[in-house]
């Protein structure tokens, strides 16, 4: 079994939470992902991912202010936990190791072929 369970979309969400730092809540995360990655994100998918990440202990949340445009509902801000940071780092190193392990010729050859 893998050491840290982190899916592709979950990783994107976590990284975005990191990018937004103190301003990461539902709508802002959704917009950030949509802007940067140019892909549609449904509220449902995002919220499930956030809930799952929180259950795994990679994110923690706190309640924020309630504004008029939110019809008096509080914002829920997310932050990466230490465990979450480790999981991200693990994923990153794993990926780098894999990148480094590719012989140069494989990639070059491919580009040449194109």
């Amino acid at each position: 079994m893998r050491k840290y369970q982190l899916g592709e979309f979950e990783e994107v969400v976590m990284l975005t939470v990191g990018v937004l730092y103190d301003e990461a809540y539902g709508v802002s995360i959704k917009k950030e992902i949509e802007d940067r990655l140019e892909r549609g994100v449904s509220v449902g998918a995002l919220q499930t991912a956030l809930k799952r990440l929180e259950e795994k202990g990679y994110l923690r949340s706190r309640e924020g202010e309630a504004t008029e445009e939110r019809a008096g509902r509080p914002k829920k801000f997310f932050q990466i936990t230490a465990l979450g940071k480790r999981a991200l780092e693990y994923n990153k190193t794993m990926r780098e190791e894999l990148w480094n392990a590719i012989p140069k010729i494989a990639l070059d050859g491919k580009f040449l072929g194109k």
Binding site: V27, E63, E69, A71, R73, P74, K75
Partner: peptide, 15 residues
């Protein structure tokens, strides 16, 4: 537990 914050998000987006 999720209701209020998500509803807030939905409202904000809707607006």
């Amino acid at each position: 537990e999720l209701r209020d914050s998500i509803e807030g998000d939905l409202m904000e987006l809707y607006g």
